[in-house]
Amino acid sequence: MELFKPEVAVANLGPLLAGLLITVELTFAVIVLSLPFALLVALGGMSRIAPLRWVIKGYIETIRGTPLLLQLIYIYYVLPEIGMRLSAFTAGVIGLTLNYSTYISEVYRSGIQAIGRGQHDAAAALGMTHALAMRRIILPQAIRIVIPSLGNYFISLFKDTALCSVVSIQEVVFTAQILAARSFQYFTLYTVVGVMYFAVSFPAARLVGYLERVTRRGYRRQP
């Protein structure tokens, strides 16, 4: 008896690719939202206003101290009980964004703190306010430093979207579950899903490696 059946794979490729598209959409939605949101979290966490810092700290600790799977379930199944009914996709995007933003904010923070005192001094000595120095001098350098780390988090995010199958988002794993429940072709279907994840993650990881080499080269004129 052969385990992998090419004809089953081909027959189910359409729905699985549709699922993969949802996975990719989910990933991009969370990337687009968490990049700015995490920056606000990072800046708020370093604010001179103590109550703001406490709120941010509380949020970060809560998210980090609980599983992502539970957070997704909570947003989709528990919030409706207090009158917040969200579509599955929205719930997934919000859950993943809240979760990943805590980690990405720490990446931003480490990047900002990596910029030396001298840059702050030089900006201040030129009459820049703190906000202007942040925007024009500190953040452009910090963001460049953290691009490779961000890339790695986003690859990990791409794979974590599989958890959204529990809130019935028709992403690729959920799609495979439905197809397998009907046909019992577990081996073939889940193997195809694995190959699909790998086919996206692997080139993405190579791209991050390339970005790492580019950012390490420093600032120079294009040859």
């Binding site: 001298g118 030089a122 900006a123 000595a125 350098q141 600032y219």
Partner: peptide
């Protein structure tokens, strides 16, 4: 003007 220049590298 600073000892270590502190030019903006970017």
């Amino acid at each position: 003007v600073f000892q270590h220049f502190n030019l903006f590298p970017h």
